[in-house]
Design a binder for these strands. Sequence first.
DNA 1: CATGAATGAGCCTTCATTCAT
DNA 2: AATGAATGAAGGCTCATTCAT
Lengths: 221, 221, 221, 221
Amino acid sequence: MSSTSTRPARARSAEEKHQRRYDILRAAERLWTAASYAELSMNQVAREAGLAKGTLYLYFDTKEELFLALLGEHLHRWIGATAELFTERRPRSPEQVAAVLLHHAEHLTPLRRLLVLLGTVLERNVRPELALEFRRDLDLQLRRLVAHMPYDPDTAMRVLRHLYAMTIGWQQLSESLPGSDPVTAQPRGPQDSGLYSEFELALRAILHQLTPSEPLAATAS
Amino acid sequence: MSSTSTRPARARSAEEKHQRRYDILRAAERLWTAASYAELSMNQVAREAGLAKGTLYLYFDTKEELFLALLGEHLHRWIGATAELFTERRPRSPEQVAAVLLHHAEHLTPLRRLLVLLGTVLERNVRPELALEFRRDLDLQLRRLVAHMPYDPDTAMRVLRHLYAMTIGWQQLSESLPGSDPVTAQPRGPQDSGLYSEFELALRAILHQLTPSEPLAATAS
Amino acid sequence: MSSTSTRPARARSAEEKHQRRYDILRAAERLWTAASYAELSMNQVAREAGLAKGTLYLYFDTKEELFLALLGEHLHRWIGATAELFTERRPRSPEQVAAVLLHHAEHLTPLRRLLVLLGTVLERNVRPELALEFRRDLDLQLRRLVAHMPYDPDTAMRVLRHLYAMTIGWQQLSESLPGSDPVTAQPRGPQDSGLYSEFELALRAILHQLTPSEPLAATAS
Amino acid sequence: MSSTSTRPARARSAEEKHQRRYDILRAAERLWTAASYAELSMNQVAREAGLAKGTLYLYFDTKEELFLALLGEHLHRWIGATAELFTERRPRSPEQVAAVLLHHAEHLTPLRRLLVLLGTVLERNVRPELALEFRRDLDLQLRRLVAHMPYDPDTAMRVLRHLYAMTIGWQQLSESLPGSDPVTAQPRGPQDSGLYSEFELALRAILHQLTPSEPLAATAS
DNA sequence: CATGAATGAGCCTTCATTCAT
DNA sequence: AATGAATGAAGGCTCATTCAT
């Protein structure tokens, strides 16, 4: 119910409909932060959005589609923000690149968990054409990000792939352990051996390995 | 039903019972490869094992216990095999250590997904004493493995943690892509840029980063 | 399905919902007449009510709650009707009191069996606050009834206790025999030696025993 | 397992078989004292008897048959003991008769609860010929008892019927209440208003009502 | 005769989805 | 467009009964 107090009873215009869809995704996101996919029922999402259960199905055909949309949104957001940061900072050294890639880490917790879902549950009960569209869109966005990175496209893509794998891996590791979020968690000093610094350290090691000491000139338009 | 065609109708001896338990775990494993925990019903496991639903409950008190046993098995197997390999080969360089750690990679595919479960679902509906026993056993085994590695215990544990995270991450990555298993998949030549070699490359980079150029003398007994 | 042929497909208004709840209770009651609690499945109740299994759970959280509601209903009904009858008739002699107590005997058949359940199964799987409310309500109603009886409260309560025990006992006896319901069954004449008259005779004997020849002035308000 | 330590591994002779059947009934009886019919599994009975589950089914076709046999036994025992007591004491007044009828009350708790079962669950899943036989045997025994009572047969049977109904009724009442066993419970003094004395009081009232002040001469052979 | 592993119908309950309103 | 009552497949689990040994 939170933060959607004033709102038209019915979404008539396209814009209102878009807004309603957005509200639903926000509700799902709020719950997603604290509960796993299986634990999270459509009923809860509906209640959180201040809507009836059936209404959700006007905007999303299945539960999976809802969460796939949520994933798309998060990816979009992160890629956009990171691309922008590359343009602003024009990082060169592996450390600098790592810093850029990790800058929006705090937004990543839900994203990482959604990515894990992608390989597990999502796309299972989704219209094939939607799945395909998702893949295409993701590809497009990644290409856009790659264009902003100070490496040749192949290398940049490899870097992203490593980032992706490590992100998921450390996320899962953190969930298997009593400790909390590996990425959001603040490093606690130079001698910190927490999960976050391990993750960062690994990312740096990879970047050193993958990229020549002197990166290409940035190709961002 | 698959591959358990000849078998006594009833498991009378302790050995037969052990075998039946083993069969059930194998059935669960086969299904587990293709479906997530929540998707996988005891009914399916029973059918796959060629047994009735109720029979499963003669061998495992709950669904969680069944999967905890599966996890235990996999851990035991991989740790044992890898520890042995350390003893045999006594690897020194990061490359050599990486090779040992990856040698039994094919065992890891289900293992890493089971490990994810551990922190999420397993141990929820399990007799407390069993959960405790599991934790203790895991701890013991890890210590045993660490003792065989050519690093001081803390470093060795960090290495394992990185291996674990990367393993999971690349697993998930591979599942999100048309390509197949990143670890099991055979490298396809010197210029292969498949997921496997990326995974390996990353592991090597980490090892280089984590370990001093000159490892300790191996401490394996 | 019986006797609920015309009915809205969905209960929208509060009244319709109340009616649906009522239908479910009636269905449960019809089955309850012929089967014990343990034998009676929610599936059967649903079928009898012409509803889907899940629908029952929209109206009752658990099986126990459903039957607790049924018991509450019966108690309420019998106590109310009997209290009213005391007010109307103001009986004095044991015979007159017995007549009042037995007047609504047809309501008692399911009631007494439900009462047995109360101490055995019900309240086991019921929200504590509901159980408490039930106890309070029952107490209140009994007090109300007692207030209408022409005896001091302790004696009145003893009378009710005897009525209760005898009611149950003769109920069971009748079920063990080819004959039908001992209480509902109509006496068949002055020389009738059926179960019903035995029951009535016993009740009268008890009343004579328990109550002084001259009852108190009725205290009904 | 209790008290059946030495016993042949297999019952070969008819006598041994009878003994084994007896052991099973004793085990069921021990458990029956503390648990309801539904709560009591055949597994438990088997364990208590120190036998395997399957063995029970060599002696009883169904769970119901087992408990029907138990009921038969208890009835037999009580009727026999009470008939004997009538012969010994030759009671005349209602109080004396009541005393005889209640003399073995402490043995009756399981019997009463079995009688309740009779009208509820037993005979449901029993071979019809067995049910018939049970009825016939019960009838026979009751006639035997009646012959020892100091009333004409019809009156005596009525008395027994009342005893039966009240027995069941007060049993059920006691189970619905926090208090304990109504009959076994010791009266606690002249002013005791416990369930037991109520039961006794009711029985006396009935006897007074049913029987002429001067009973017939006893007809016991 | 005895065993106890195996069976499978059945239990209560949940929840994504549908559809009458 | 919105609702939320209704659905019913599916879930984990139990236990009286069967049957291979």
